[in-house]
Computed example of a mutant assay.
Amino acid sequence: MSSTIFDIEEMLAKDGLDPEVLHFPTLSPFDSEALCEAARRAACIVVVEEHNRDGGLGSIVLETLADARILRFTTRIGTRFDPKLNYGTYHEATVNFGLRGAALADAILAACS
């Protein structure tokens, strides 16, 4: 998802947002130090993940910040599990869940406003 954020960076900048993008390729080990350093500088934290938002990166971010007593408004953007959905290809799924282009930019901007 990091490259996707870079793809929409211009859309975000037009609305005054200058995101600091952290890339977490694994949940274990998890770079809690980098997260906490960035969170201390942030007014708002938006976790974007290309899979189920429950029990994933967003959850570990919230737990890490709570343990470090860093209180910031935090939003998780990701997929949800629904056995009735046809997820299709990776690209189709990310589009259907709003994890691409203008839809993602709008979700991030809404979370930070």
Rank of each mutant, 00 (worst) to 15 (best):
A13G: 05
V46G: 12
Y90S: 12
L17Y: 07
I70A: 10
R40V: 14
T26P: 15
L35Y: 02
D7M: 02
L109F: 10
A43S: 15
G56Y: 00
V47M: 09
T75N: 01
G16R: 00
D54I: 14
L99A: 03
E92V: 06
E37F: 04
G56R: 08
A103N: 13
L57D: 03
L65T: 06
A110E: 01
A111T: 04
T75E: 00
V48Q: 08
V61W: 05
D31V: 09
R76L: 07
I77G: 10
T4H: 05
L71N: 12
G16K: 01
E33M: 14
L17A: 13
R40N: 15
R100W: 03
S32V: 14
A13M: 00
A93D: 10
F24H: 06
E37H: 06
I60L: 12
D18L: 12
L12W: 02
L99E: 08
A43Q: 00
G55I: 03
S32E: 15
E63G: 07
G101C: 14
C44F: 05
P83A: 10
T4W: 03
F97E: 13
C36H: 09
L27S: 10
P25C: 10
N96K: 13
H23P: 11
I70Q: 07
R100S: 13
E9V: 03
G16C: 06
D18V: 09
S28Y: 14
I70R: 10
L12N: 12
L109R: 09
R76H: 09
M11V: 01
L22R: 12
P29F: 04
E49S: 06
P19C: 02
D7G: 11
A68G: 01
M1N: 02
I70Y: 09
T94G: 11
L35Q: 06
R69L: 04
T94K: 14
G101Q: 06
F30P: 08
Y90G: 11
R69E: 04
L65R: 05
A107Q: 14
I60P: 04
T79N: 03
A68P: 05
A103L: 10
L57I: 11
N86G: 15
V48H: 04
A39N: 01
E33R: 15
I70G: 09
A105C: 07
S3G: 08
M11P: 04
D18C: 13
